[in-house]
Design a protein around this nucleic acid. Structure first.
Lengths: 104, 104
DNA sequence: CGCTCGTGCAACCCTAGGGTTACACATCCA
DNA sequence: TGGATGTGTAACCCTAGGGTTGCACGAGCG
């Protein structure tokens, strides 16, 4: 459940569609999701698999079918990490700029 | 310069290394970056290309060499979008939960 | 019980893209 | 001017992974 996995998960357009669709419905199975997507059920299952590993989605078995639901917390966490990294870069850049100023 | 491009750019580990290295140095050319990475210069150039398209890096020609530098703003922007999406999902999930409560 | 529906799984196809080497060209400097 | 040095580009290799079809299996229901 690394950050890299989250980015990789978010990188694929079909996967983002799956995520969005899932968010709209609250919860759904791979089969019903596939009905409203231009790809097969198997493809959707694979996508849900990587989304699950990335922690962006929760898998819950209900009888003979498998329900998935979105987990916004993970997305927020990833976003916060991004902000942290960006801030760190900013600080470093500011420091470099300051040094450049002093040397002038 | 779509959001998808940013995620795709961030998805590759080598690319993240390039980004980090670039952030450490403030600015650098593809050749000098390649010196401290386990891949060839050509590979680094390609990576810098997608980072550039994603807006995460700025390309600046200086004489016969090409300097690149990191652009934290784009990273922050992407992060903010993520937070927005997560918030939207949260709201939707909350709504669905509320409806479920009412139906009870 | 028998039929249907939802999953899991295996085998396969095909392209994107990350990586390489080799060569041509431009710029800087002794 | 000539030789390093830094880029760009072309041709190529190879795997990851997104997509498919086909089939077997288990759960639910008339």
């Amino acid at each position: 459940m690394q950050d890299g996995e989250v980015f990789a998960a978010l990188a694929d357009p079909t996967r983002r569609d799956v995520l969005q669709l899932l968010a709209d419905r609250g919860q759904a199975s791979a089969t019903t999701l596939a009905a409203d997507l231009p790809v097969s059920r198997v493809a959707v299952v694979k996508h849900l698999g990587v989304l699950d590993k990335a922690g962006l989605v929760a898998r819950r078995e209900a009888g003979r079918e498998v329900r998935y639901e979105v987990r916004p917390e993970r997305l927020e966490l990833a976003a916060r990490r991004l902000v942290e990294v960006a801030a760190a870069w900013d600080a470093r850049l500011a420091a470099i700029k300051r040094i450049a100023e002093e040397e002038r």
